[in-house]
């Protein structure tokens, strides 16, 4: 059955509906939330979302080890995410 196997990238997202997914976004942001809807632009609707924003402080010329990474976290109940910011959507780990 074509609808049950993974034949193309979007199948992987379809099979993640109603599961918790990890989303990497532009602007050093990432989300974890339960996927309820998506479309061909990778617009997403997620619930029970936790956003993590990575802010790198320190000069651009500082040694990589010298830079301080600040992490800001935020929770949102129900969130629409515009697809143009999405870098990747990763299904839940089946460990």
């Amino acid at each position: 059955m074509a609808s049950l196997s993974i034949q193309e990238p979007f199948d992987l997202i379809r099979l993640s509906l109603s599961e918790r997914v990890f989303v990497k976004l532009r602007g050093d942001r990432q989300l974890s939330g339960i996927l309820h809807a998506y479309d061909g632009h990778m617009n997403l609707i997620l619930s029970d979302v936790e956003e993590t924003i990575m802010l790198v402080d320190g000069m651009d010329d500082a040694e990589p080890g010298q830079q301080v990474v600040n992490i800001a976290k935020r929770k949102m109940d129900m969130l629409f995410v515009r697809g143009d910011g999405v870098i990747l959507v990763s299904p839940p780990s089946r460990a």
Binding site: H36, I45, D77, M78, L79, F80, V81, R82
Partner: peptide, 13 residues
């Protein structure tokens, strides 16, 4: 638009 926060009680998941 980056995000839109929606009223969860008006979304039928």
């Amino acid at each position: 638009v980056r995000y839109v926060q929606l009223p969860a009680d008006h979304v039928d998941t």
